[in-house]
Amino acid sequence: MFIFPELNPLEEIALIIGIILTLIGVFCDIVGSIGMVRFPNFFVRLHAATVGTIGGAVYPLFGITLMSLALNYLGVMRYFIATGAFLTAIAIVLTAPVGSHALARAAHRSKTVPVEPKVCDFLKEDERLIEE
């Protein structure tokens, strides 16, 4: 009613929220990829990867769900797209932190990655205390 004259008010609110979430997703994606190139260590790059996966893939998938429910010209297909995007967003939220935590634990315990620009390493001190 405000900008798009051919939709209901409810559908128009869903379309505007979907467009805002998609723009946030594209911005977080670019920021996450720049961070992956420029950070000095593997354990610092985990912070950039978090922005890249959650801010760059989960938020915009929720945005696609809302955006696709409001478009009438797609016909029946909009329900397929909305359900698939919603289930993919939930799958990414449940499995991506588990995977990266397992990777970081294996990298620290097998000493594959040296902790180079180091300030303090509490985990190594705790491991030495447990062994004694």
């Binding site: 997703g25 994606d29 996450g32 990829s33 992956m36 593997f42 790059r45 985990l46 990867a49 890249g52 996966t53 760059g56 893939a57 915009p60 998938l61 696609i64 797209i81 698939g84 995007a85 993919t88 990414i92 991506a96 995977g99 990266s100 990777l103 970081a104 294996a106 990298a107 594959t112 990655v113």
Partner: peptide
């Protein structure tokens, strides 16, 4: 190291999911 490469593959895959949508 290997873990750097697997983390970047992780991020590429979730990014491609959004592009497919």
């Amino acid at each position: 190291s290997v873990t750097d490469m697997v983390l970047a593959i992780d991020c590429i895959t979730y990014d491609l999911c959004f592009l497919m949508g």
